[in-house]
Design a protein around this nucleic acid. Structure first.
Lengths: 350, 350
DNA sequence: AGCTACATTTGGATCGTTCCAATCTGGTGA
DNA sequence: TCACCAGATTGGAACGATCCAAATGTAGCT
């Protein structure tokens, strides 16, 4: 009676049309739920779609309609739980809107960033969410993506002057204010000698957090010793290694505002190794509120940035941009929330 | 002299061809680096490509060539560091081979898994890497993806009988052997009363690990008390909560093989709260070797599964399958390696 | 000049979909 | 009987690339 689904090849509109004696155009209308088609025809077509196990070819449709249903998500490294949560939030929100996530990782290399962006662009994403690699420059990014897709910058600024042509949306974290909150909290607990520990000065988020710390210290009328600023890679291991540097100066701090949670947890370890009990003999705060922060020993006072929610927000922003390509570019600084736990003890009475 | 790049529309082969007085076909040959084209023509075309800022439209090419350059990666949850590392490995290896990763998260829901697979299939991936949701059934997966793309199962088995039609590749972890190694290690250290802690019995990986534990105990001629099997959600929090259950039975264990690292770290916390010092008064092992394992207090003896390498391996397997669609399906059980750290102390002398 | 051989280049059909204008059908009113 | 209309359906030309067979140009040889 009716024809077989083709072998070794996915069924197309033509196959369906042939299979139920309708034209390609009608089948297409059915697929898109057009009210033009007769109820009876619709039923027949739908039956045939099922019968042949038809799967829509979005690439072909997108080609014809000059549209796209994917969004490129470009990150440094998924292994970083902060970005992993962010990516999960992005993907969830995009999926809910019928979009698909094209993933790309740069591993903090501007060269790979360009390569990845170039490769993803060939798949014609409707928009791009980019958390730039460390020394990535605005001019380079502009040169590779041009005006081919709207860009949302997340988490970090790009280096170099911002080219006139690029009016990109931004979703940043309130690093400065967060670090200020943490510092003020330690000040309130009675600390006066507070260090800023970890991170590299060429990272914009680190500079911002450091600025917030300096701001709070100044506002309290306190001076900061230069040797209270200890740089190290934002990893647990390197942080643990650099712990002794805290006590190398003339005036030892009684507390530290750490660049992020990884660094804070590493510092805890380093303190232990020196026989100090974090949260007891020495206070510290983190940044990010990663899962382990609440379960550390002691639990870590930190700043919650809700990366999953930020991911959903980033997705929303890009989707809104697709709706209104001409709207003014949006600059959003997401608030952060201080989570007080046991690591931020008062100073020893001595 | 030469024409302008079009405004508001990406340049196409036609634009380039018109721009330098060549035919579309020739430009296409240049793009694909064909040796047929004259050196001079190639130079002229390439100049024009640059001038108009041409970006290849892979979707159009794939449509014509009936190929695809994307692979779908479907996971439960990126927020789980194990999967995040795995995804990073997959993406890296795929990018190196010129493929692009289509991401999808299921959140452990078979219904969402079907939806996500359906949506990704419309983008015509060349292959699929799937780490199934907990109660996902083989028949359902077969019904949604059919023969449209080769599938690689990672990490978990699907429920229900395996349909005849589906000959899928598999990349699994040697859960049974890993747990056996951990148990034998504890036995060697002198423990005789060893519990199996955490995880749910309806998870295939948990069943396998438990089997390995039982196997080692049997082989050592030891019996296992039923109350030495404590189930809980595979999270730190739930593990911490269930710690007391270990000591509720008549015969208290002196060590525990934990379902995974998260559970082990949670158990450490729970032990602390009972005044026990893990790695001193009580021995335990984990599974996964997540980043925190090495930095726990004490550092955790665990099984390294190298999720990033597994990701790269998964990518390779799928790419190989694309080369040889007809080859026999491959069943790989990746070895795991015991990493001995301080948490697996000998039993107290008492 | 005529022929072949070789290196380049090219028009037109095609992939699977959507858009558009045109067509078909049956019913209605003059 | 015919013009008209609304509702339903359809053929053919796109979208941006690739493939293929055929065309073009150039040089060498007789």
């Amino acid at each position: 009676m009716s024809s077989q689904p083709p072998v070794g090849r996915r069924a197309t509109l033509n196959d369906i049309a042939a299979g139920c004696g309708m034209s390609r155009a009608t089948v297409s209308l059915v697929l898109r739920g057009s009210p033009l088609v007769n109820k009876l025809t619709r039923a027949r077509v739908e039956e045939e779609l099922r019968r042949q196990g038809y799967v829509y070819n979005r690439a072909a449709a997108n080609l014809r309609r000059r549209t796209s249903t994917s969004i490129a998500l470009v990150l440094n490294d998924l292994a970083n739980p902060f970005f992993a949560e962010f990516a999960a939030g992005v993907d969830e929100a995009l999926a809910a809107a019928g979009f698909v996530t094209l993933l790309g990782c740069t591993g903090e290399s501007p060269a790979r960033e360009r390569a990845v962006l170039g490769s993803l662009l060939e798949h014609d994403p409707a928009g791009i969410i980019l958390s730039p690699a460390e020394h990535s420059r605005a001019a380079d990014v502009l040169a590779t993506i041009g005006r081919r897709a709207p860009l949302l910058l997340f988490n970090r600024e790009l280096g170099g002057a911002l080219p006139e042509a690029a009016h990109w949306d931004r979703l940043m974290l309130d690093n400065r204010h967060g670090a200020r909150l943490a510092t003020e909290h330690l000040l309130e607990r009675g600390h006066r000698h507070i260090a800023f520990f970890g991170g590299h000065h060429d990272s914009s988020s680190c500079r911002q957090r450091h600025a917030g710390y300096v701001e709070a210290m100044r506002a309290a009328g306190l001076r900061t010793e230069p040797y209270w600023r200890i740089e190290c890679a934002p990893t647990r291991l390197d942080a643990a290694r650099h712990a002794p540097a805290l006590f190398a100066g003339a005036l030892a701090p009684t507390a530290a505002v750490c660049y992020n949670d990884a660094v804070a947890l590493g510092l805890m370890l380093g303190l232990h190794q020196r026989g100090l009990r974090p949260g007891h003999d020495f206070a510290l705060t983190g940044f990010d509120d990663i899962a382990e922060a609440a379960l550390g020993m002691p639990p870590l006072t930190t700043l919650s940035v809700a990366p999953r929610e930020r991911g959903a927000q980033a997705a929303q922003l890009v989707l809104q941009r697709l709706q209104q390509p001409q709207a003014a570019s949006r600059q959003i600084v997401a608030p952060v929330r201080l989570i007080v736990r046991e690591s931020s003890c008062p100073p020893p009475i001595a």
